[in-house]
Design a protein around this nucleic acid. Structure first.
Lengths: 217, 217
DNA sequence: ACACCTTTAAAACTAATGTTCTCAGAAGGG
DNA sequence: CCCTTCTGAGAACATTAGTTTTAAAGGTGT
């Protein structure tokens, strides 16, 4: 998406330096900071490259503002903003599963969002969350009110915890995923519970569970 | 601590504005930004107040640097740094509980830390974390490897999830706390499990559970 | 080779922005 | 009452820092 052509080494270096500088100093660098750090002979070269990085969506520049550089992530959102993931719906046995769309649709505005640790979006990209309703996920060690953070996906590696939709049962569930030929074994996180098996055609993977968050107070 | 004397309304307004500005714009304001927003007649007045705020430890100013203001929290640490809580130890039935000290002691350097959502430290102040080892907390819906975020405390309200140390059993456990006269009822989070009761003297509360975090992948 | 685009360069220009100087009123203490 | 300290005001000053101008080197395709 964002990387149509190639990224010259020098431009990448500028981008990396800006990120490091902000992390280290809590404010963006000046053009001349970048010039010195990246050993560039002229501020106009820095300006030239910043202009392209701006055009290509890697950052925003506020004109005539000192240090007016704002880094953007892959989704075009400012880096360093409080990391939030939208709670797109509730999950319970038998409840219909909301659709995970890559775009933030208007309908999802009405739902809340939850703050998460910054490293989650950083490692997994765009995420969604579901709030668990009722005790139906107790075998996955997930309680009523817990929030499940999910990376949308239709595939999963063996052993990954997934959001699975069982078509025949019309039931959503959180289980570890183990393909076994034309069957699928869904293993609860709680080792004292027995796994369930069903035909591969009956299981639809909607996403991978990235984190479970339970808050008190 | 930080508030020895009184804080004039105007100075407080400056401080609040700086915080809001950084949150909204991702970079600190200029002296003139503050001047306009706080309706101050002269930049020298802003400078004067910033000087005092710097002296009193509310912020750092980098001389001759555009927007060189860095807000500090109550502990004198830069605001906006990635929120981390130290994992001060592991918890399992029968394991000794590490001591929660208000100061970061040298010994705890060897342990890891975990990123948490920014609102947790903001709401609860200084926090610690324990990594759960083994399945002994399964009745609290907590799995091996989960991280329990804890606010140090020796008291608890009825119904709060606490880290309790059972003296006779030499056992650490995570339960909901219900005082019942000279007895204490410790209720597992999993409603299918039975509570345990013991004398109030046998129970030592070490902290309140603020959040439970389970990560995958 | 040529045209065309990207990238680098050097220097100057202008606006943004921190700092300082001088003056003055208000509040508190001896 | 005078003195000191804190606070506010207005203007000017000096540095920082974004922007522009002009030129040229390095590619790429024709």
């Amino acid at each position: 998406m964002t990387l149509n052509k190639k990224m010259p080494a020098r431009r990448q270096r500028i981008l990396d330096f800006i990120q490091t500088f902000i992390e280290d100093n809590g404010l963006p660098p000046t053009v001349r900071d970048i010039q010195k750090a990246c050993e560039i002979s002229s501020t106009s070269v820095v300006d030239y490259n910043l202009r392209i990085l701006d055009r290509d969506g890697f950052l925003n520049r506020r004109p005539d503002v000192a240090r007016g550089i704002e880094l953007l992530d892959d989704a075009g959102q400012p880096v360093g903003a409080v990391p939030r993931v939208q709670i797109v719906g509730r999950i319970a046995a038998g409840s219909p599963l909301p659709v995970f769309s890559a775009e933030g649709n208007a309908a999802s505005q009405e739902f809340e969002s939850i703050e998460v640790a910054p490293d989650l979006p950083k490692r997994h990209g765009r995420l969604f969350a579901l709030e668990v309703q009722g005790q139906s996920m107790i075998d996955a060690l997930i309680d009523d009110g817990d929030v499940v953070v999910i990376k949308p996906s239709h595939l999963a590696e063996p052993g990954e915890m997934v959001v699975a939709w069982l078509k025949d049962e019309e039931e959503a569930t959180l289980k570890k995923f183990y393909p076994e030929g034309d069957q699928v074994r869904l293993q609860p996180a709680n080792s004292s519970m027995d796994p369930i098996r069903c035909s591969a055609g009956n299981v639809e993977i909607r996403g991978k569970v990235v984190s479970v968050i339970r808050k008190f107070g």
